[in-house]
């Protein structure tokens, strides 16, 4: 497995595992994250996986003293390299599948008609294409539990809105260019909104505060407005 280390300031090391978004690099990112989680390095603060890299945050005060010539960066690098040599990338393909119920169109998906028009499709066809896909969560960023997702059909790709909405409600499912995603918290944004899920993607009081994690597979399941509302009421 290819890897390359470089420093990000005096508290972080970036492990580069490729330079392009693809399944192999993504699986390697997952394997490396998993391997780091299995370790109990005293200097480890946390790690942050992204499309092609894993960034490791460390505390230079907690690295073991080797000799006066070795910096905390060198000590941490050596320990990481030793670990990375044992990681068998690509092999592990176990991933969770998370089903996200979505009420498409209407007041929950005010831009569904626009997405259909731009792509010369009917609204039903857009919903069908969007909900037939399987999507990979490459990374989480931007907001708590916000997934950067790959796998959307280009047949429903739609440019962002010219002027962003001041507030997009939590649970909104949207399209921006070739990406699709779900908004865990209310935030401003320029995505085309095609539906909304009654699931809560971010719950700070839960032991796993975000519904989605990097490496998950997502499927979207269309639900009726009635099902959406009864789901909300149960909560």
């Amino acid at each position: 497995m290819y890897f390359h280390l470089s420093p990000l300031g005096d508290h972080a090391i970036v492990i580069e595992l490729g330079d392009d978004i693809n399944e192999t690099v993504h699986r390697n990112v997952q394997c490396v994250s998993h391997a780091i989680e299995q370790q109990s390095f005293e200097w480890l603060i946390e790690h942050i996986p992204a499309f092609t890299k894993v960034t490791v945050l460390y505390d230079p005060m907690k690295t073991p003293y080797v000799n006066a010539h070795e910096s905390p960066y060198e000590i941490v690098s050596k320990q990481l390299i030793r670990l990375l040599r044992t990681v068998k990338g690509s092999k592990v393909t176990r991933s969770r599948t998370v089903e996200i119920p979505v009420c498409y169109g209407g007041e929950y998906g005010p831009d569904l008609a626009y997405v259909a028009k731009v792509n010369h499709l009917t609204e039903e066809e857009v919903v069908h294409i969007h909900s037939q896909g399987t999507y990979t969560v490459y990374m989480i960023g931007f907001a708590p539990g916000f997934p950067y997702v790959g796998g959307m059909s280009e047949r429903i790709a739609t440019p962002r809105k010219q002027s962003p909405r001041l507030e997009i409600p939590a649970g909104s499912v949207g399209i921006a260019g070739k990406q699709t995603g779900v908004y865990p918290i209310a935030t401003p944004g320029g995505w085309q909104l095609i539906g909304q899920t009654p699931l809560s993607l971010f719950d700070p009081n839960s032991t796993s505060p975000t519904l989605l994690q990097a490496g998950d597979t997502i499927v979207f399941k269309p639900i009726t407005r009635q099902a959406y509302e009864s789901y909300k009421e149960e909560k």
Binding site: L8, H11, I48, F51, T55, L57, G141
Partner: peptide, 28 residues
């Protein structure tokens, strides 16, 4: 491609005007 940033990262968007990321920075 998006990747992790940390306290004190100086990033430069395409307009060339640098931004220093601080305590409430996004994670990536």
């Amino acid at each position: 491609l998006s990747e992790a940033v940390v306290f004190g990262t100086i990033q430069v968007p395409s307009n060339g005007e640098p931004i220093v990321l601080l305590a409430d920075r996004q994670t990536t």
